[in-house]
């Protein structure tokens, strides 16, 4: 196996041109090294892009958004005051990823490019309507995260491209949000079911202007519960309204049976945890409005 440690994007493009599909990009390595050890991938060349951290390892506030370099560590996302101020939801979510050892190494971009539907961050990033920036020789394109995550471990990174940045729009006014992770086994496990919910209230402080719900670990990608979102928009969020919305979620998910629970059990749990998440997101939105 060949190994390259480029320090500029141009060098990364050169390496990708040379090795094509036989190359794998690596940042923290926590995902890829495990896949190599399990012989799920056998790259001809490993391209370690950690050396680009000077350019893509920072968080940059912009007018109405935050630009997060792909090489920012997940530990930084959890501990940075800038991130917590901008999005407590995101800081809380990164805190739930595996263990500190993993978060010290794993990066924001690496995690997303891994395309694993059981990870925590994509669930909340979906609710926050994050976008990813993909750089190629012909320029940079920006893709909605929900479109970027295409299938099980499959993303919209095209040949010759590198995920360089994540763009995080500000949460709507008068909104509250929460990430909930159902962990019946151990605290560092993947979720059995996870859900992020965001509720934005109208000027009256009662009517739901917008609700967002995304689930993790119950399909080949994270899944937006659009039926639930549609039901809640424009409604006063009573317990009944939240119950009715959560009841649409099991039909939208497609979990697998594994040692974290049967498919049927997980499907039932998506309703329970969506209800809890919406209730908490509403409470936080009301607090923010009060």
């Amino acid at each position: 196996m060949d190994y390259l440690a480029p320090t500029t994007l141009a060098e990364v493009f050169d390496a990708l041109d040379k090795y094509g599909e036989d190359a794998r990009l690596m940042a923290g390595g926590t995902g890829l090294v495990n896949m190599i050890k399990q012989r799920l991938v056998a790259p001809e060349c490993l391209i370690n892009i950690s050396g680009l951290a000077g350019q893509y390892g920072q968080v940059r506030p912009e007018a109405t958004a935050l630009t997060i370099g792909a090489l920012v560590t997940q530990r930084h996302m959890e501990t940075s005051a800038v991130i917590r101020d901008f999005s407590p939801l995101l800081a809380d979510t990164y805190h739930r990823v595996a263990t500190i050892r993993i978060r010290n190494a794993a990066t924001v971009g690496g995690g997303l490019a891994h395309g694993d539907p059981s990870q925590d961050p994509p669930v909340s990033l979906s609710v926050l309507r994050a976008r990813v920036r993909l750089a190629g020789r012909s320029g940079v394109r920006e893709v909605e995260l929900d479109d970027f995550l295409k299938d099980y471990y499959e993303t919209d990174v095209r040949p010759g491209e590198v995920l360089t940045e994540v763009v995080l729009p500000a949460a709507p006014a008068r909104s509250g949000s929460v990430y909930m992770k159902f962990l019946p086994r151990t605290a560092d496990d993947y979720a059995t079911v996870s859900v992020a919910a965001l509720v934005a209230l109208a000027d009256d402080g009662k009517t739901c202007r917008e609700a967002r719900v995304t689930l993790g670990a119950v399909g080949t990608t994270v899944i937006r519960a659009t039926a639930a979102e549609d039901l809640l928009r424009g409604q006063v969020l009573t317990d009944e309204a939240i119950r009715a919305a959560a009841a649409t979620v099991p039909a939208a998910v497609d979990p697998l049976t594994d040692y974290r629970g049967s498919a049927d059990y997980k499907r039932d749990m998506t309703e329970v945890w969506t209800r809890r998440a919406l209730t908490e997101a509403l409470a936080r939105a009301q607090q923010a409005t009060a």
């Binding site: 190994y3 440690a5 690596m26 390595g29 926590t30 090294v33 495990n34 490993l46 370690n48 950690s50 530990r75 500190i100 050892r101 993993i102 010290n104 190494a105």
Partner: peptide, 13 residues
């Protein structure tokens, strides 16, 4: 100064 899993850390990295 940061704890990591040395079983997931490549020597080259």
């Amino acid at each position: 100064d940061a704890i990591v899993s040395s079983c997931l850390t490549l020597g080259v990295a």
